[in-house]
């Protein structure tokens, strides 16, 4: 009887979370799968929406752009965040000030920073004015298909690096000092201390940062929508923007749902591979 009561109490306290997961996660996911299998005007399930999007050069291009973007942005952000975390982990007089400065962009809503960056990126804007004294001619930035994606990467990294750095600093501060002392006595140099103490000890926070950053970058939307709307010539048409365009601008719910399912599968595969890799490397270093 007591056990049963405890179960009820547990259920009662868990109910908000369970209901939220069902209503906000599982149900929409099922709805997306349902619509993705319904072709326009069709009454029975088929893979027509999937055949359609994979036959559509715009969607294929957006997948390709998303892959290129992910391959560049994730290592870049994590390397920068790790570098800054190592730097900021030192007890220097103004570390607090610099940490705050690096973390500050996180406190600004992404949409607001995008609007500000849009003004800076204008061909007659701030960045070109700063570059001019160094003899660098006016750059087209967001108006050029060769530079627009790089501009987006710069903007999201400006926001993201500080955020991910905070997790890594927390991880660094968790590493017992005794480990460093031990390897120093063994004669380890700076690189060896980093390679054999810091990195293995940082495996858990790094795994988290790697996975969370990858997912966040797959889902980047506001900067693209505000800065380029996927252009010029589809060069920044990341998959979230493509899904949005299909669902809300062209009103093609079926193909948007199919694209969403493809995105979810893609993210799942990448994250699973990442978990596997991080675990493997963890096993080896033990």
């Amino acid at each position: 009887m007591n056990r049963r009561r405890n179960l009820y109490a547990a259920l009662f306290f868990l109910a908000p979370a369970i209901i939220s997961v069902i209503v906000l996660r599982l149900w929409p996911a099922l709805v997306a799968v349902h619509y993705s299998l319904l072709a326009p005007r069709a009454t029975s399930y088929s893979f027509e929406n999937y055949t359609y999007i994979f036959g559509d050069p715009v969607f294929r291009n957006s997948l390709w752009i998303t892959l290129i973007y992910s391959i560049i942005v994730n290592p870049l952000q994590i390397a920068a965040a790790l570098g800054l975390a190592l730097l900021m982990n030192n007890r220097l007089p103004t570390t607090g000030f610099w940490r705050t400065l690096i973390l500050l962009p996180v406190a600004i809503p992404q949409s607001v920073s995008a609007v500000i960056w849009a003004v800076a990126f204008r061909p007659d804007g701030l960045i070109n004015a700063v570059l001019a004294p160094f003899g660098i001619g006016p750059q087209p930035f967001l108006t050029s298909p060769d530079q627009a994606l790089a501009c987006i990467i710069l903007m999201v990294s400006w926001v993201g690096v500080g955020y991910w750095m905070t997790f890594l600093i927390a991880g660094l501060q968790d590493i017992p000092k005794s480990l460093y002392e031990a390897v120093t006595i063994d004669g380890a140099n700076r690189w060896q201390r980093f390679r054999y103490v810091t990195l293995p000890q940082l495996r858990r926070p790094l795994t988290f940062v790697l996975v969370a950053d990858t997912v966040a970058n797959f889902l980047v939307f506001a900067p693209v929508q505000i800065l380029t709307k996927g252009g010029p010539q589809g060069s920044t048409n990341l998959i979230m923007n493509e899904v949005y365009t299909r669902a809300f601008l062209q009103g093609d719910r079926g193909s948007a749902s199919a694209a969403t399912v493809v995105l979810v599968l893609l993210v799942l595969i990448v994250v699973l591979v990442q978990f596997r890799l991080m675990n493997d490397s963890g096993e080896q270093s033990r």
Partner: peptide, 9 residues
């Protein structure tokens, strides 16, 4: 979108 691309060269 096409107009935007044309405008951007």
């Amino acid at each position: 979108r096409a107009f935007s691309d044309i405008r951007n060269g």
